[in-house]
């Protein structure tokens, strides 16, 4: 049986090749994030700290906004849970693959972001490559790209030869693209439109500082209600066929 080091060494070229597209994306977005965070007046070590410990692009961009607002740890926690909710699904579908792996699985669970999940879920490897070592390296490389990008942006953002006013729009643009992409792909627009409509209602009702928590709670309740309704309808239908 090959040693752990040699298994990692053998898997490295494969992991690198599979994560190349992510390298470009994470360096670019990471740098934007680093510039945005430090440009908003926060210390250089914040982007480094968050890219190491939070490692969720969406949440990190949002964190800048949260830090600029009033102190509200409950809102921050709820947002982190909602934004991370999809990772729970990733975890569920990786349960069996990650479970038998040794201590490295704890890091792999921590680093299970969208991009890492999509590579690890779909990768087809030659039989000689240890899958556990490969998935570990994919997780590690992806985070390295992100940390590098964020640090570069944080360190060198202030030396950019042009004014960066308006750079914060990159977050809006990113979320618009993600939203648009899901509209183009999803079969049912129920959840997307519900999110849009409920938050817009609460924004108009309560104003920009208070609308987030009521929106989150209402969206969750409505989704559970819809699901229960669908479940009942499905059961009735099932009974009708019998």
């Amino acid at each position: 049986m090959p040693s752990k080091t040699s298994a990692l060494r053998a898997a490295l070229p494969h992991a690198f090749r599979h994560t190349l597209p992510i390298l470009a994306g994470f360096l670019f977005l990471g740098m934007t994030y680093g510039i945005y965070m430090t440009g908003s007046g926060f210390p250089v070590y914040y982007p480094l700290l968050t890219s190491l410990l939070v490692f969720s692009g969406t949440m990190e961009f949002l964190a800048v906004n949260l830090l600029l607002g009033a102190f509200s740890p409950i809102q921050a926690f709820l947002l982190a849970l909602c934004i991370g909710a999809r990772h729970t699904v990733y975890g569920l579908s990786m349960l069996e693959e990650y479970r038998p792996l040794g201590p490295k699985k704890f890091y792999m669970i921590f680093g299970l972001c969208d991009e890492t999940f999509s590579v690890n879920r779909a990768a087809v490897l030659p039989g000689t490559v240890d899958r556990g070592a490969f998935m570990f390296l994919v997780t590690l490389l992806d985070q390295c790209y992100w940390v590098c990008g964020a640090s570069l942006g944080a360190l060198f953002g202030s030396f950019l030869p042009f004014p960066t006013q308006g750079l914060d729009f990159s977050m809006t643009a990113l979320f618009v693209v993600i939203f648009l992409e899901q509209l183009l792909k999803e079969r049912s627009h129920l959840s997307s439109l519900l999110g849009l409509a409920v938050s817009l209602c609460f924004l108009l009702l309560l104003g920009p500082d208070l609308f987030l928590i009521p929106s989150i709670v209402t969206i969750c309740l409505l989704l559970l209600l819809c699901d229960r309704h669908a479940q009942k309808a499905g059961k009735k239908e099932g009974a009708g066929h019998e």
Binding site: S191, L196, I219, L223
Partner: peptide, 14 residues
């Protein structure tokens, strides 16, 4: 929630 919340959250984030 794991499956359905994600699209709604990005609507909310926009």
């Amino acid at each position: 929630l794991g499956e359905l919340l994600h699209p709604a959250v990005f609507g909310m984030l926009v």
